[in-house]
Structure formats: C-alpha cells, structure tokens
C-alpha cells in the first residue's frame, strides 16, 4: 500500500497536478521525459499563449515554480516509466532516468502525457519539409519568439504571410477526422503577432470555418478589426515554388473560382495528435483510447478525469485537443480526484 501519487508528464496539466497535490499534503513524484519542465509549450518555445496572449514564459514560469522545493514532491526530468505492475493502491513502477533505473511504489497515477503536433510532411501536397518557407504553427511559435519574424529560406522579413487551417485535422485522407480545437485561435494570435512585428505585412487566413469557440471569439474579431487580417474562404490545393516565392493555388469559394497567389511565407495549422508518450503510457497501463487515439475517460460526466483502470487519473491534451489553461484546470482536478481516492482507501 502506497500513499504517493505518480504524475507522468511535466506539461501544464502535470505541473498543476503536482502543485495541487503538494498543496493537499499528498506525497507525489513528477516524471518528465524531456530535460526541462513545461511540456510542449516549453519544448517548442511557444511565443504567446491563449487566452490572454501573455508570453509563454510568463505563463509557464509560475507553473514550474509551484512544483520546486515542495515538501513531499520529487521532480524527475529526463525520465520515463518503462514498466508498471501491481494495481490501484500499490502500483510498482519502473523508471528509467539519467541516474539509471529505479523502482517506486505509487497508490495512484495521474497520466498527463499531452499531445504532439501533426507532422505536416504526411500531407504532401503542401511541400512541408521540402520548401523551407512552408512552416507549421509549431515552427511559427519559435519564429515569433524572436524579435523579428524572418522567413527561413533567406532571412528576409516576409511581406505576405498566409495561414492554412485544418492541416492534419478534419481530414479523412490523413486519418484524423476530429477538430484540433486550438488551431483557429492560435492562427488568429499568430496573425496578430505577425502584424504587430511588421504592421505593413499582409496576412491572410484560408479557412473552411472559424472555430474560435466561446470567449475566444474576441481573438477572431480582434484579428479582423484591430489588425486587418484577411480571411479567405476556401481550401488551398497545393503550394509550388516560383521565383523565390510560394505560389499558393486554391479555390476561393465565395468568388467561386480558382486563385494562384504568391506568398512569402505559408503557415500550416498542423493539428494535435496523441503524442508518442501518450501511446506508450496507454500501453503500459492498459488504458482505453477513443477512436482517434486519445485517452478515454471512464465516464464523460461522472468520471471525466479517471481512466477505466482503477487508480489511474487523466488530465490535459492526452484526453483531447485543448488549450493549456484547460489542461491546468484538469491537472488540479485530477489531483483532487487522486487524493480523494487515496484517502478513501486509507479509511477502509
């Protein structure tokens, strides 16, 4: 019987879970496979985070701070679980880390393994990975973290920038039929950032429909009203290099006809997929996955943060595509559910 909680994943959800458990006085171990805490926003050097558009560093730093030097909380980076045995109340977990292998006991496990960006090379019509000035939103986050936005091929400041929504999402052809939910808002934010860095830039967003859901609608409005970002309804069919620029071909469905317009930089809104860590941990713990590969909760309403496997709790983008603020809320929620679970067993 163990009183400790193992948290797998040191992104926003895992960090929130760890801090919450420390607040509750529950012993915990946080395991992160990367050398640094902060998850995907940290790994890919995100620029600004939704919803309040503060620099990602400003948002992540307090999350990381809250898990440092806490009593009863161990933080291991560069480490990952390699084998799990036992059952709820007494899991035996083998960890591989920089100091070698170790085994620890945990009463409960919180899985917060997050997501990975869709690899846009799989959608070959856009030439990602072939033409340097075709980038995805992940590359763009890093590029926007720099003081000036420069295009990869020649370091010039791009004057005409285009975004293509729904790359690797809502597409039977690539095998992902779900909406990645964040990309519309992220592209609005990135478009705004492009305009902030270079007000003379022209920015176009090629869309089928805009899903800046809920309170995020203001980002869509702001992009249009404050920054003059233009929205073109239609799909881009292919991108070809021409005279140092990118020739972007598609149909403008409102004009009912094709376009072939040159751009300096094209950004693909590559969606979210369950990360390699999520797939691996699902196998280790025998967790059910929904048809798209994300982790499935035991019940969407009575147990949204619990796996069907007793003693295993879920939080963040391994459940479905979502923003980091939602992931943080789920991390805290999963911590409370895990603590309550351990307490109910101790009382038995």
């Amino acid at each position: 019987m163990s009183e400790a909680v193992l948290i797998i994943g040191g992104g926003p959800a895992g960090l929130a879970a760890a801090a919450s458990l420390a607040d509750l006085g529950v012993e915990a171990v946080l395991v992160e496979k990367e050398p640094e805490l902060g998850g995907t926003p940290k790994k890919y050097a995100y620029s600004k985070l939704v919803p309040d558009l503060r620099p990602a560093q400003e948002t992540l730093a307090p999350l990381v701070q809250r898990v440092q030097g806490r009593e009863g909380l161990r933080v291991l980076t560069d480490a990952r679980p390699t084998a799990v045995s036992g059952k709820a109340g007494d899991f035996k977990v083998r960890l591989a880390g920089p100091a070698g292998e170790e085994e620890l006991s945990a009463g409960a496990i919180i899985v917060a393994t997050g997501f990975e960006h869709f690899d846009a090379r799989r959608d070959t019509k856009y030439g990602y990975g072939i033409y340097p000035d075709v980038v995805d939103i992940r590359d763009m986050e890093r590029m926007l973290s720099e003081p000036q936005l420069k295009r990869p091929s020649d370091g010039q400041v791009p004057q005409r920038v285009g975004f293509i929504l729904c790359v690797g999402s809502r597409d039977r052809m690539v095998g992902n039929t779900y909406c990645s939910r964040v990309c519309c808002s992220v592209c609005c934010v990135q478009a705004i950032e492009v305009k902030e860095k270079n007000p003379s830039a022209e920015v176009y967003i090629f869309y089928m429909d805009i899903r800046t859901y809920g309170l995020l609608e203001n980002l869509y409005w702001e992009a249009q009203e404050e920054h003059g970002v233009l929205f073109v309804k239609g799909r881009v069919g292919e991108i070809l290099p021409r005279d140092g620029q990118l020739m972007v071909k598609g149909e403008d469905t409102l004009l009912r006809g094709p376009f072939e317009v040159p751009f300096d930089l094209m950004v693909l809104a590559s969606g979210m997929e369950p990360g390699e860590g999520t797939v691996q941990v699902a196998e280790l713990l025998n967790l059910a996955r929904e048809p798209n590969g994300f982790l499935a909760p035991r019940d969407s309403h009575t147990a949204p943060l619990e796996a069907a496997v007793e003693g295993v709790f879920l939080a963040g983008a391994d459940l479905a595509p979502k923003f980091s603020d939602d992931a943080v809320a789920e991390g805290a929620g999963a911590a409370v559910r895990a603590a309550a679970f351990l307490r109910s067993r101790a009382g038995r």
Binding site: M208, E238, E251, T253, R256, G257
Partner: peptide
Amino acid sequence: CWQCGMCTASCTANSVYPDFNPRH
C-alpha cells in the same frame, strides 16, 4: 461535402473551363 473547395482547387478541368467547378 462541406463545400471547402479542395476539389475545385485541385481540378484539372477547372483550369481549362472555369465554369467546371465541382464544388459548385
């Protein structure tokens, strides 16, 4: 079909005959 325009964007016949618009 949700009218995204990918078909017309990729269409060979549309590039010869603008009235041939599969989406439409």
